[in-house]
Write a protein that binds this DNA or RNA. Structure first.
Lengths: 218, 218
DNA sequence: AAAATAATTTAGGTTTGCCAAAATTATGAT
DNA sequence: ATCATAATTTTGGCAAACCTAAATTATTTT
């Protein structure tokens, strides 16, 4: 059996993994809101279970088995987020916390039926792709808004954080997934960006722009 | 904070409580699938938290605070069961286990919105009443099928067990919540009961009859 | 290359919830 | 009323998941 805590560790490793790089103990502790010592403990356990490959002092990677579990948790999390926003009409800034709990509910059948009920959604309310039952994730060509050039016209494809304040701020600015944004100006001084939403003009700080995933119009 | 385990204990005490009677350690252990020693441990903790009133060697009762929590868990459990059967179209014999997990999800807002989405149902798929937000439970005059007299015409109001085999058996017999049953004969020998469902004739053992909650036609 | 600093692991300890075995208390039979 | 049995509690111990502080290893600076 795999516990909720173990699932959270695997999910964090997955999220922190870039390319073929190892994930450090410290980063994991940060991401999980725990201490490096606790991470060492759990990493040892998950390595023994062959869900993580651990090189002492060098970091961890997911094994095939570990990745499968991580993707399953991510899938469940994102499907529940769709349910909460679409079916129960909750706001996108409040669903993450609840999905953190729901993702640990154990029932294949439940998730299959939920998926069907929701109409097999491919993206969650934050624009993140939902892995299918085999762990396959839809790829899209995206760039950060911070990397866009002046004059570019792009659609908001996703946000890189679930931070509630951040999402509420976007709501306030009437910016949501799918919004069409035109880059009017990039301030050389602080890299903040002036944009047109069609209706009005807004400015995003460089920090905000690092959280916004953009794509070309279809 | 209250843990899932604590919630389960309170729920079990609630379910085993009859009138003003105390619930015994042994019965609790049985109901929770654990040992009397473990129950003693947890009873001590919940008594210290003022959720249970414990008289050593005499049993426990719920306090007001404990009852409130228990009713809240029952409410969540039954609302989720409605969701699983009605929205996701799962069978009534498979929802109990999943609802056992879902009942521990923490979010007032979620449950309120779920309740609204489901149309404020008053009974779950097994015919059990769903407490409202204040813990109020709808009362109905019901009797066990085992207590019905020959000639009685009654509606199936509920079942007293979530046992999957039992529910599948009822399904097979085409007996469900709301079914109208006429008592044709009661065998003196073993108290088994012959019934007419309108379409066909069936016989239920005394044990089965002790699990079926019946009410007068409205 | 050695020293200083940073990252990681280990050691030792806590809490929660569980259990088996032993001790205690209540209950039913004679 | 006493004894036997059943129910309950206590004792001592285990595993999971966490923590702080100390020890170890890696990395960076000088």
């Amino acid at each position: 059996m795999i516990t909720a805590s173990e699932e959270n560790y695997l999910k964090s490793v997955f999220k922190l993994s870039e390319k073929d790089k190892s994930v450090s103990t410290n980063d994991l502790a940060q991401s999980l809101g725990t201490t490096p010592a606790s991470v060492s403990d759990m990493v040892k356990k998950l390595s023994e279970k062959k869900l993580l490959a651990h090189q002492p002092y060098k970091g961890v990677k997911l094994t095939q088995a570990g990745k499968k579990i991580a993707l399953d948790i991510v899938r469940k999390h994102r499907l529940w987020e769709v349910f909460l926003t679409q079916t129960l009409e909750m706001k996108w800034d409040s669903v993450h916390e609840i999905a953190e709990q729901l993702e640990h509910i154990q029932s294949q059948d439940l998730i299959r039926k939920l998926d069907a009920f929701l109409g097999y959604p491919r993206f969650d309310p934050h624009g993140d792709p939902i892995p299918d039952e085999n762990g396959k994730i839809e790829e899209r060509k995206t760039i950060l808004l911070g990397e866009a050039k002046k004059g570019a016209v792009l659609l908001l494809a996703g946000v890189l954080t679930d931070n509630s304040d951040f999402l509420q701020y976007l709501d306030q600015q009437q910016v949501r997934i799918g919004s069409r944004l035109t880059v009017l100006e990039i301030l050389p001084f602080d890299k903040s960006v002036s944009l047109s939403t069609g209706k009005k003009q807004i400015t995003f700080s460089a920090l905000v722009c690092q959280q916004l995933l953009m794509m070309e119009e279809v």
